[in-house]
Amino acid sequence: MRRVVARRAFETAILLLVVSFAIYALIGLMPGDPIDLMISADPRVTSADAARLKALYGLDRPLVERYGRWLASALTGDFGYSRLYGQPVVAVLLPRLFNTLLLMGPSLILALALALPAGVLCALRPASRLDATLNLLAFAGFSLPSFWLALLLILLFSVVLGWLPAGGVASPDGGDLLDRARHAVLPVLTLTLLTAGSFLRFVRAALLETLSDDYVRTARAKGCGLRRVVLVHALPNAALPIVTVVALHMGTLLSGALVVETVFAWPGTGRLVYDAILGNDYNLALAALMLATLLTLSANFLADLLYLRLDPRIREGV
């Protein structure tokens, strides 16, 4: 088992490295570079100055060499300064990461709390009217454009009903815990509705697959009630694919968080990526993207570990 874990960790690290290089190369292809920005900010800069500055900052070196230097300092925890915020990148990122997790955590839990019972209900009575209705709702859930759902919720709860604030993390005067919670309701609700649908479909499919297995029929033949078979025999086994799907959804959830944060003016990592890329803040964009990648890849890695713990067949290396 240790060997499997080590191999997966190694693969994750390699993937992270490849992605970091790809992002580094791509960011170099975005319009404008730091020297261009200096030139536009200061009319006295001549082209000779620009060339000198480029040499000074090492921007005239080949891509691979620049990447190597960035990687070397990034590995020591130094991601440079953010141009937009005038602070070390890490100091900008960490509070934002906390804000994003504040959205993702509750919505993940809520989505599962909705999808698990609903999926079990569907799997118990496939092709019933209830199953059809819940399925249609699930389809609607993952067909919704995230930003539009956010706009609709704002329209309903902020504009028409006036119950909840339309954006931000807290009222201008600071705000207590209740005020902050009120600001989080709509973003969390948006993310929850976006993910619950596909979770439901996966729970249903995983459970239906398990329910057609032989041991379930054996348990039924022994006289086991349907409820007991589902909860005690089938659900733990169906948990495997569900765990994987949830882990694989971290990327989707993060993408959803980006949109939700943009619409609700929620200062999180996703919105930061967007602002940094559009604002030519290379260091910040790189670090934020790497953080997003790290987050999803480690979720996958954790899912693999969990998989190993839950499934003795893989654990024993069969």
Partner: peptide
């Protein structure tokens, strides 16, 4: 496994 949208934004900004 990759976070799709942030990467799409980078590509779109190229």
């Amino acid at each position: 496994a990759l976070p799709l949208l942030p990467l799409l934004i980078v590509l779109a900004a190229v």
